[in-house]
Amino acid sequence: MSEEKGVILAVRDLVKEFPMADGRRLRAVDHVSFEARKGETLAIVGESGCGKSTLVKTIMNLHGPTSGEILFHGEDTTKLTGEGLRQHYRTMQMVFQDPAAAFDPKMHVEDILAEPLENFGLLKAGEKRKTVEALLRQVELPRDFADRYPHNMSGGQRQRVAIARALALRPEIIVCDEATSALDVSVQDSIVRLLVRLQKETGVTYLFICHDLALVSLFAHRVVVMYLGCVMELLDGAELSAARHPYTKALLASVFPVDAAGAIPKTIPGDIPSPLDRPAGCPFQSRCDCAEKRCQEQRPELREVSSGHFVACHFA
């Protein structure tokens, strides 16, 4: 059933809460459901505090969910333990925002890239150098980078090494958590082009966490927009201009145009509310222009407004 349309990951009704010292519970992810298909880039977009990082950490099994299921090829990965879980980690790898912090500064790139393979006993004796050089070639770095330390590289080069490490185990899913947001625009552009090329070659699925809608509009197949732990809208990356949720529209309107005549974007006022102080009804009501009484009382369900386009808004 879940293998339909090449779905490899299905998140069902996922909730993640954290207990607070004063006994309250902070709900970071609130009944989130979506599916990721083989070979696609699913962007998860939202501002800080919207729960996107907690969501992917739960998907990566770095902590368990409060409730809900994460189905990988139909199997609930939240139930995995021990060796089963360890083997599952092979299929999902992660690229982080700050590659300088993701590496051991005292390890050569060669050892950084070989380590995941050694952990799973996948490296044949005498083939370490050859394998590492092949990985470097995949991310368009010269062979002699194998002898460098992380601090001897630029941010973009380090991020390429991080991508090579993620690729080493031939995972089915790579989670990129703000993988390009610390980079300069031209470097960001080259990393995104690299990711797209690698996807075409290997058929890997990306979960791409990002807060820049303009960037994801260039290469995401589908986009999940989150706010206060909830999915607000799910739509095609190529159809972002057809967004119907007021929050998605506000995010789109916040992009500064590269144009001298460009006016300063008119955006929504205020800040995201505290997840400890969640409003009843629609999570977005406090910053929404069209909020009415109904929005305060009833939380809008995510419903399909056209094929593959889901919106959680009473007015969409």
């Binding site: 625009v185 509009s217 260039l218 197949h221 190529a238 201009s241 789109l252 590269v258």
Partner: peptide, 26 residues
């Protein structure tokens, strides 16, 4: 500068800025 950048570096920098509705890579 934004309308008609002269230096190659400026052109490269401006071209790398992601824009909504720009040409998609996929």
């Amino acid at each position: 500068i934004l309308r008609a950048p002269k230096a190659a570096y400026t052109k490269k920098l401006l071209a790398a800025v992601p824009v909504l509705g720009g040409e998609r890579y996929v």
